[in-house]
């Protein structure tokens, strides 16, 4: 990580779960609101921003397939980061990341905007999130149109949810370490997607599944956590799994997750229940990134191999990370998304 990116992180930190030196996520959250275990989500209000908290994101990943069977991955993300506590619009910095993973390569783009103007922002009802011309708008968050573009790509997708919003952790209170760092976290893993990708090779009609993560916090990581490996998986039977492993600089890891039944019923997983083991690394952007994983959940008799569809799915953004579609084989076949930071 170069010095320039480091500094920018201070400006616009906010990727889900960055580690320690990263983004000041390990900094103290003095004067910011803190996650409360007794807090319960109230929709649609909580689809909107929570500016008293330091960081927040609207994070969509989609596994898409063209008519000829070619797999694609799409990401649409909007981060909010407060420079100062108090929630003033002018103290907010917005950052957008958009990407398409394709057989020809990983295309991505990044946008930044200062708060307090119409350049970027989120409203809960009717739901609308945007930065520049990138949009995620619904009548509500269960029925959204998602669009973004860069110099070499564009996508226009319609997503409609076939299941409920799912609170992560304990009723939406997601604990990130033994020390108690936490966030408010819910997902919408039940989107059916149709739409169009525009690539240099032409337009591609696609269909598939998408997953939305909503999370806000003020200090989700401890000083010693260095990065994370996160998966969101759609199994063929309709069940879903969200799991992540927070790596500590002493070599240990804090692994948590949620098993989501096909009807949307969540079962939080205790630290250590889920086991994630890197199997194969890929050299990408000068770093060795594990792009094949063995994941097991003995409680559910689950033993799967998760492999990147396009191992080069590197986001060379101001805060660089790996994010791309994966295939799932083994006891519970399916597909999903993998995100890895801190490499």
């Amino acid at each position: 990580m170069n010095a320039r990116a480091l500094s920018l992180i201070l400006v616009c930190l906010a990727l889900p779960l960055w580690a320690q030196g990263f983004a000041g996520l390990g900094q103290t959250a003095k004067d910011y609101a803190l996650p409360d275990p007794d807090f319960r989500f109230s929709f649609p209000g909580d689809h909107g921003p929570h500016p008293d908290f330091r960081i927040e994101w609207w994070y969509v990943t989609a596994n898409l397939t063209a008519a000829d069977g070619t797999p694609y991955g799409v990401q649409w993300t909007l981060f909010r980061n407060a420079l100062n506590p108090g929630g003033a619009p002018g103290d907010q910095v917005w950052m957008g990341h958009a990407a398409v993973s394709t057989p020809e390569g990983h295309l991505y783009s990044e946008r930044l905007a200062r708060g307090g103007t119409e350049q970027s922002g989120v409203t809960a009802n009717p739901f609308s999130a945007h930065i520049d011309e990138w949009m995620m708008t619904g009548p509500d968050l269960s029925e959204i149109a998602v669009t973004a573009q860069g110099h070499e790509f564009r996508y226009d997708l319609r997503m409609s949810a076939t299941g409920p919003f799912v609170p992560q952790g304990k009723a939406g209170h997601s604990v990130k370490s033994e020390a108690g760092q936490a966030s408010h976290y819910y997902s919408q893993p039940f989107y059916e997607v149709t739409g169009t990708l525009e690539l240099s090779s032409g337009k591609v009609e696609v269909t598939g599944q998408a997953w939305l993560d909503r999370e806000w916090s003020s200090q989700p990581l401890t000083d010693t956590q260095t990065g994370w490996d996160w998966v969101s998986l759609h199994f063929e039977g309709g069940d879903k799994l969200m799991g992540y492993r927070l790596r500590d600089n002493d070599g240990s890891a804090y692994t948590v997750g949620t098993w989501i039944a096909a009807d949307g019923t969540p079962t939080p997983l205790e630290n250590g229940e889920l086991m994630m083991r890197p199997v194969e690394e890929t050299r990408v952007a000068g770093r060795d990134v594990p792009t094949v994983w063995d994941i097991s959940l003995p409680a559910r008799d689950m033993s799967i191999r998760v492999a990147a569809v396009y191992p080069e799915s590197w986001m060379g953004t101001r805060i660089p990370y790996w994010e791309g579609p994966v295939t799932v084989e083994g006891s519970h076949p399916g597909q999903g998304y993998l995100e890895m930071s801190g490499y």
């Binding site: 010095a3 480091l6 500094s7 920018l8 201070l10 420079l83 002018g90 930044l112 905007a113 200062r114």
Partner: peptide, 24 residues
């Protein structure tokens, strides 16, 4: 600094550590 095209001299002239303190 948010929208400055990357690689422009003004963007280069701002040292990374000064970026946050410059804002506002």
């Amino acid at each position: 600094p948010f929208s400055m095209p990357a690689g422009t001299p003004a963007a280069m002239a701002i040292a990374p550590q000064d970026l946050t303190t410059m804002l506002g």
